Amino acid sequence: MATFTPPAADAMRAKLLLAARDEFAAVGVGAARIERITAASSSNKAQVFHYFGSKEGLFDALLAQTVAETFAEVPLDTDDLPEWAGRLHDSYVRRPWAQRIATWHRLERGAEAPIEAVVSSTAGAVEAIEHAQRAGVLPRSHRPAVLLGLVLHLAAFWSATAPEFDPLVTAVVPARRRQIVVDAVGSLLRK
């Protein structure tokens, strides 16, 4: 049976996650400081450990929340995967911390046990793609998980490029960047 969390606890947990988002996005897990997170959230270390167990637990909860928010904001659309990739690109532009959190996760937490909430939401997306492939909506040129990975990476292309690449593409305006993502996914899906 699920336990009831009082609204004040929900609010504190949300404040901690928001402060952690800014801290972790800026410096990653290793360099993040609980003291800065608690000061920014008007909280204390005891609350971090109460709600999340550790700094790493806080980070993992933040990653899970970020993935859930992304899929809620941009629900998978297997009927129009190129446009979905465009909307996902738009989400990354509006929420730059999402890609930074994902990058820090790969760099600092990737060897840890998978985060079940992230595995579950990703598995749901893979199942939807597999269903669309079986129905003939999407090509079977790639396994469902590979196709999802390719689309996710294409959608994140502009927000995940190295700063040294930026001078080479300064003429590519934001609207064109989005269209490049849509076109690239469209090309990937052509039979």
Rank of each mutant, 00 (worst) to 15 (best):
A2Y: 13
A2V: 12
F4M: 06
P7T: 07
D10P: 00
M12T: 04
R13P: 01
A14N: 07
L16E: 12
L17H: 10
A19N: 07
E23N: 06
E23P: 03
A25C: 09
A26T: 08
V27G: 02
G28A: 06
V29E: 09
G30I: 01
A31S: 05
A32W: 06
I34G: 13
I34V: 15
I37L: 02
I37H: 09
T38A: 03
A39P: 15
S42N: 12
A46R: 12
Q47C: 01
F49L: 11
H50D: 05
Y51A: 08
S54Q: 10
S54I: 08
S54W: 05
F59D: 05
A61C: 06
Q65M: 10
T66Q: 04
V67R: 11
A72Y: 09
A72V: 11
P75S: 00
D80T: 00
D80E: 00
G86N: 09
D90G: 08
S91V: 00
Y92Q: 01
V93N: 07
V93A: 12
V93E: 10
R95E: 10
A98L: 08
Q99F: 00
Q99M: 07
R100H: 02
I101Q: 03
W104L: 03
H105N: 01
R106G: 12
L107H: 10
E108L: 06
R109H: 05
G110D: 07
G110M: 05
E116T: 14
E116A: 14
E116C: 02
V119R: 15
V119M: 13
T122G: 01
A123L: 04
G124L: 07
A125C: 14
V126M: 10
E127F: 11
I129C: 09
E130A: 15
R134L: 02
A135W: 08
G136R: 05
L138D: 02
R140Y: 00
H142P: 06
H142N: 10
A145D: 13
L147A: 03
L150I: 03
L152C: 03
A156P: 05
A156M: 05
F157Y: 13
W158F: 14
W158G: 06
A162L: 06
P163I: 14
P163E: 14
E164W: 08
E164A: 13
D166P: 02
P167K: 11
T170N: 12
A171K: 15
V172K: 07
V173Y: 10
V173I: 12
P174E: 12
R176N: 06
R177Y: 04
I180Q: 11
V181S: 03
V182F: 13
V182E: 04
D183C: 05
G186K: 14
L188K: 09
L188S: 07
L189K: 15
